[in-house]
Every structure is written in structure tokens, then in C-alpha cells.
């Protein structure tokens, strides 16, 4: 983009307050702070180091997925197969290592190949047929769910595959994907590190690279983007592959941590990823959102799921609380966006 000779309204100075208000992650940030303060006041364990490590754990695996799903949603697509794919990859690692005797690292690698194949298949069908990704990945979701159960039972005669401990390469793979980092006497799961690194990486890619611009452009208006030379098809394919890779990472983390995999793992999680991304400011219509916001959305989930335990509430109410959080978040986002847009026009 060349700098215009005459300054126009697109490059006019913007007040810092408004620049803050139009950030997609603002709603999620406020939400995360409110949830933290709320539970921290209710329970001293919640704000202790052990407590923090406890709620960062569910936030981390969800966050890894939410960040990838946020990128995809900014790019204007959905992936409903992402949840069950975490189960598929975990099962692949476990079955390949225990039933076929492969080295765990090799199993992890083959599982990545499988994940990429699924992601690229999603991307190919969506970009080729122009069908809504909602439907295409819903089909993939069902296919994978059936495969997970069918193949697992066929090969192992069971729905729970265990026995990863002691396989060659398990210890080093466990160290990388599923160990804990000791910090001041508290054990933090290594998945938290993966999550933070990926959030930073995704943010940099989105805001500081050409590919990031392509993602926003494709999600905003794919045809317009194509007309100005954005490789829209390739961008979409890359985004589906990214989601699949994240699913592989989470599946591997889960399998190595549980030293086993269940045939029904991950089913139903796909909506949670989308909810976290939406709380984080992603629009369902694409073209707007942030990776940090999605991570904050995941953080809200993590704090809530564990915070309810610390508060001593009945877990039956967990979903109600989450639903209320989601609605509050979208209301806040909507309000902030309208406010910002009205200010711009006046």
C-alpha cells in the first residue's frame, strides 16, 4: 500500500482512548479481570500459586485451540471438526505407539501428518466447492467421530486405549508435551508455555506480517481481497491447516498426559473453542478479532471451571454461568463497537 498524497480520514489521528475501545480483546480483558476478582474474593486458594496453576491448566489446552480457531474465524471460516480432531490425533498417537509398537515420537509425527491431511481436506473442499465451512466441517466432524469409535474398536476391541507409559520415546515426549514446570514450588503444566508461545506467535503473524493482512482481508471480503491480489484460497487452506495443527498439539498433550486416549475424546469441544474466540472479540462473520482476545476467552473458561470448585458451588450451574458470560461478552463487544463507530462518524 502506498502512502496517499492527501491525508484522508483513514489515516486521521485517533485518540488513544478510542483506539483502546475498538480493540477486539477489550471485552474479554474486562471479563477476565471481573471473573478473576470475583473468584479471588470468594476463595483464597483460587489466588494462591497452586490455584493459579490449577486454572491455567484447562485454560491452556482450550487457549491453544481458541487462538487457532480465532485466526480461522477472522479469515471468515468455521471448523466444527476441530474438537473431535483432538480426539483423533490423541487416539492415533496412542494406537500407533501401543498397538503398532512405533516410537512415541514417530507416532506423534504421523499423527501430525494425519491432522494436516484432515485440515487440508477441509480447506480444499471449502475453497473448491464454495460450500459454507459450517456444513463441510460438520460433515468432517461426524466422519471423524465415527472413525474414532470404529477404528479404535476394530484395532483394540475397546473404547479406552492405554499403556503409553514405558514405550520407547515416551519419557522425552512426555517431557515436551505433558510435563510440569516447577516455579517457586508450584507445578505449572508445560501446556501453559505452549499456549503463551502460540498466542504471541499468532498475534505477531496477525498484526505484523503480510499473511496476517491476508487473513483479515479474506475474512472481511474474500472477493475484494482476491481482486487486490490476495491469494484467498491459499490463505484459507493455511488457516484450516493451522487449526488442524493446533488440534494435533492438544490431542498429543492430552494423550501423553493421560497416558491413554478415549474414543469419545474431544466431541463437543468445538463449540467451546468458538465461544472462547467470540468472547475474545471475534465476529462470526469474519474479518475482525484477535488472538489475545481468544486466549483471554479461554482464560475466562479456565478460571470459571476451576473457580466454581473453589467457591464450593454445585457444578450443575457451570454451563449457566458460562452462557451468561458469553452473552455478557457479546453485549459488551457490541456496545463498544457501536460506541466507537458512532464516535468516528460524529
Amino acid at each position: 500500500m502506498s502512502a496517499p498524497a492527501v491525508p484522508d480520514e483513514r489515516v486521521a489521528a485517533v485518540s488513544p482512548v478510542r483506539r483502546l475501545l475498538v480493540r477486539p480483546e477489550l471485552g474479554a480483558l474486562i471479563g477476565a479481570v471481573v471473573v478473576f476478582v470475583f473468584f479471588a474474593l470468594l476463595s483464597s486458594t483460587f489466588r494462591s500459586a497452586d490455584g493459579v496453576a490449577n486454572w491455567l491448566d484447562p485454560a491452556s489446552t482450550l487457549g491453544i485451540m481458541a487462538v487457532a480457531v480465532a485466526l480461522l474465524m477472522i479469515g471468515g471460516e468455521f471448523d466444527l471438526s476441530a474438537g473431535v480432531l483432538t480426539g483423533t490425533t490423541g487416539l492415533a498417537v496412542t494406537i500407533l505407539a501401543t498397538r503398532f509398537g512405533l516410537n512415541v515420537w514417530l507416532a506423534v509425527l504421523l499423527s501430525l501428518v494425519l491432522a494436516l491431511a484432515v485440515g487440508l481436506a477441509n480447506g480444499y473442499v471449502v475453497t473448491r466447492t464454495k460450500l459454507p465451512s459450517f456444513i463441510v466441517t460438520l460433515g468432517m466432524f461426524l466422519v471423524l467421530q465415527g472413525l474414532n469409535l470404529g477404528v479404535t474398536k476394530l484395532l483394540t476391541g475397546n473404547v479406552l486405549v492405554g499403556g503409553l507409559v514405558g514405550r520407547s520415546g515416551f519419557d522425552s515426549a512426555h517431557l515436551v508435551f505433558a510435563s510440569s514446570v516447577v516455579l517457586g514450588g508450584t507445578y505449572f503444566k508445560v501446556s501453559i508455555v505452549w499456549w503463551l508461545v502460540l498466542t504471541v506467535l499468532a498475534t505477531l503473524v496477525l498484526l505484523r506480517t503480510r499473511f496476517g493482512n491476508w487473513v483479515f482481508a479474506v475474512g472481511g471480503d474474500a472477493n475484494a481481497a482476491r481482486k487486490v491480489g490476495v491469494p484467498a484460497t491459499r490463505t484459507s487452506m493455511a488457516l484450516f491447516a493451522t487449526t488442524a495443527t493446533a488440534a494435533w498439539l492438544v490431542g498429543t498433550i492430552t494423550a501423553l498426559r493421560n497416558t491413554s486416549a478415549q474414543a469419545d475424546a474431544g466431541v463437543g469441544d468445538e463449540l467451546t473453542f468458538i465461544v472462547a474466540a467470540v468472547i475474545g472479540g471475534c465476529l462470526l462473520t469474519g474479518g475482525f478479532g484477535s488472538a489475545v482476545g481468544a486466549s483471554l476467552g479461554a482464560l475466562i473458561f479456565g478460571m470459571t471451571s476451576v473457580g466454581i470448585v473453589y467457591a464450593g458451588w454445585d457444578a450443575d450451574w457451570y454451563k449457566l454461568f458460562l452462557g451468561a458470560m458469553l452473552l455478557l461478552a457479546v453485549f459488551a463487544n457490541q456496545f463498544v463497537r457501536r460506541y466507537a463507530e458512532r464516535r468516528r462518524r460524529s
Binding site: T45, D57, P58, N258, S260, V306, V309, Y310
Partner: peptide, 15 residues
Amino acid sequence: VPQTQAQFIDAAVNQ
């Protein structure tokens, strides 16, 4: 979900 169950146990231990 087994890992969630493990997290609930961790929470109880922390308390």
C-alpha cells in the same frame, strides 16, 4: 473428560 476430572481432583487437593 479425564483431564478435567484430574483438574477437579487437583483443585480439591489445593483446598
